[in-house]
Amino acid sequence: MAQKLYRIIRACAEMGEKNPIISIHVQGAGENCNVVKEIIYPKGAEIDIRSIVVGDHTLSVLEIWGAEYQEQDVLLVKPDSRRLLESFCERERVSMAVFGEIDGSGKIVLTDSAAVEQAKLTGLPSPPPVVDLELEKVLGDMPQKTFEFNRVPRLGKPLDIAPEVMVMDVLKRFLKLPSVCSKRFLTTKVDRCVTGLVAQQQTVGPLQLPLADVAVIAQTYTDLTGGACAIGEQPIKGLLNPKAMGRLAVGEALTNLVWAKVSSLADVKASGNWMYAAKLDGEGADMYDAGVALADCMIELGIAIDGGKDSLSMAAQCDGEVVKAPGNLVISAYVACPDITLTVTPDLKLGDDGVLLHIDLVKGKL
């Protein structure tokens, strides 16, 4: 479904100045009540809840208005572009609903046409709107929220391995880590070439080893242009130095991305996904330090983050104890690729004639 929706948006974007889309908002997990009011702000609109496409017609107004479901976009288009957009949706077999019009009231008014019709049939007065809200009260100039973080000193201890621990036991546990072990359990159970536009998938070489550094996709079936994407994350470093974690996550993403032929470093954009137990002492301050270091690093490199996501409640109470996840930052870097065939893969190709080199780019420092 996401691919179908992507093709519709792309068809509109490729029309250039005739693009029918004035504004677009991806729903994600933000519910209709969130994305609709944001896309109509500040003008306002009247929305008919029953115009929204649902599979279960017994759903209440509240359930439809506040339901969390994804792969849906809310678009703002001119009335004369409606038929064009409908033709794109029909071609891709994607449902489309027109559920309101901008009216300049500055409010979001949610009505239930089914309830209004029922009232007419029974001779009762029409029910009031389900929602009648001034948008300025929820989306206007809201007071800035202040967060106070406390720093917790890091008391480092030297590595102490118990004498009864055997090297082979440690090695087995180490090789079981998802960040170290083979990713074959992930890559072999899915179709790795959906759409036929995948130029570099997760596996490489004649043995299909899951070692690819960068993902590359083609833009069309006939040209060599496309896009490249790579990921970087260094959560273990964050336990010792959050600033280093931020810088190294960017470094890993870029040194993975470099194995594809890209347009230029200046064209690189990235998504930043943060995962922290930010309300706990020390965690919020660590996240702030990582964010500052990340910003400084990207400014110096001339690249930027243009989106992302955060999960800042990565802690839970369990049997009277607080269980928290280590803070983490995932950088997903992407850029245009002028030639999808010029991709270097890490599988060894020279046999006994090859040489392996270790290059310490940071000279032993984080």
Rank of each mutant, 00 (worst) to 15 (best):
N32D: 05
I22N: 08
S60T: 06
N32I: 08
A13F: 11
C33I: 15
L59P: 01
C33W: 10
D56R: 06
H57K: 11
G30N: 13
R50M: 08
N32S: 07
A45G: 02
I21Q: 03
C12S: 05
E71M: 15
N32G: 06
A67V: 14
I21V: 07
W65L: 03
N34V: 14
V26P: 10
S60M: 05
G44A: 07
Y69W: 07
T58Y: 07
G55I: 15
N19P: 01
R50T: 08
V36W: 00
W65P: 00
I64M: 03
G55P: 02
H57G: 09
H25F: 08
V35D: 02
Q70S: 12
N34A: 14
I24Y: 10
V35G: 03
G44L: 04
C33K: 09
Q27G: 06
H25R: 14
G55D: 11
G66Y: 10
H25S: 13
A13D: 09
I49D: 00
V35R: 00
Q72V: 15
V54S: 06
H57P: 01
N34M: 10
W65H: 04
I47C: 02
E17Y: 12
G55K: 11
N32W: 02
V74H: 03
A45F: 02
K43S: 14
I47G: 00
H57W: 15
G66H: 13
Y69Q: 09
V74R: 07
D48N: 07
E17V: 13
C33A: 12
A67H: 09
I49V: 04
G16S: 05
A13G: 12
W65F: 04
I49R: 01
T58W: 06
V53R: 13
N32H: 03
H57T: 13
M15N: 04
E17N: 15
H25T: 10
V74G: 01
S23Q: 14
P42T: 10
T58S: 10
Q72F: 03
V54M: 05
G66S: 14
K37S: 08
I39T: 03
E38Q: 08
K37W: 06
E14N: 12
G30F: 11
I24P: 00
A29Q: 12
K18Q: 11
A29E: 09
Q70C: 12
I64F: 02
E38F: 07
E68P: 05
M15P: 00
G55N: 11
V36E: 01
E17W: 12
D73P: 13
C33N: 08
E68L: 12
I52H: 02
Q72A: 13
A67P: 04
Q27Y: 00
H25W: 09
S60P: 02
Y41P: 01
V54H: 08
V61P: 01
P20H: 03
V36I: 10
A29T: 15
V35T: 09
L62G: 10
K18W: 11
E17D: 09
H57D: 09
E63W: 05
A29C: 11
C33M: 12
D73A: 12
V35A: 10
Q70D: 14
